[in-house]
Amino acid sequence: MNRLSEYMLPPAKSVTAETTDALFTFINNTSLILLAGITVAIIYFSWKYRRRSDDDVTPVISHNNKLEITWSVIPLILVLIVFSWGFSGYMDLRTAPDDAYEVKVIAKSWLWEFHYENGYVSVNELHVPAERPVKLVMRSDDVLHSFYVPDYRVKMDVLPNRYTSLWFQTNEPGESIIHCTEYCGRNHSNMNATVFAHSQEDFETWLETAASADDDMDPVERGEMLITRNACDTCHSADGTRLVGPTFEGLWMSEREMEDGEIVTADENYIRESILDPNARITAGYDPVMPSYQGSLSDSQIDAIIEYLKTLQ
């Protein structure tokens, strides 16, 4: 029966996952035994006591105190076990160790921003050191979201008006998927990200070089890479398809009508403003839903994005 639970659960990659899985397996197995008993009783009674004639006389058994107490107390004991087990596991999940490495998370519709201690910001990629507890302090920029890593068995809602936090520790370098699990609108199901666990050394190297890693790339290539990395392409296509936001194709230097009737030319300043203060001017026919990239894109990165957009004629 343990095989069933193993099949049902994703690989356990955090130090707390073991407790969760053990409890899951315990409830699963107990339930299966009880369910089997009930099912056998249903089938056996249905057959054994089937009606033989219309004049069947049945015994008057209105209650049986011993039996009733038994089947009230045994389940009560079982659920008390499950309760305390679940609660103690939960307290472990809630109490982050003091030496945890802290990353700030900002959820925006529909992307995840990760802010590191040195000021670097990554979008939809969370890099963490392995073999060390990591604490995420999270808030949302707009509606409710929820941060979920199935492999780590951790989940926490992300709220716009207060900070929430969770912690985990993984001991093996590797990748795991992050989902948003609180419904947040059109692209809810695309609001995924990846957590990369590195060894302590690799993590430090990554953190040092990440900020400058793309500095010497060709501007067009760099722009294209940034579009993907910052999840711009969730809402803006490069091939003319209409998604949540306007397509990038043919955008550069085009005349655009705004919601308030104003006509603007999509030049450098317009694009810059659209990235840093997206709701200042809204293209007619679209909703004001884009989050701001203030603080997560540098000037040189915005230049690179503009260079890339120029190529999409």
């Binding site: 407790t19 969760t20 409890l23 899951f24 409830i27 699963n28 339930s31 009880l34 369910l35 659920v79 499950v82 309760f83 087990w85 679940g86 609660f87 103690s88 596991g89 939960y90 472990d92 999940l93 929820s146 979920y148 199935p150 068995r153 951790v154 989940k155 699990t181 609180e182």
Partner: peptide
């Protein structure tokens, strides 16, 4: 029975909203 599973705090953290 699956309700019992979801009532168990540690497990619900994993299963909630799935």
């Amino acid at each position: 029975f699956t309700g019992i599973m979801l009532g168990a705090l540690a497990v619900d953290i994993h299963l909630h909203d799935t």
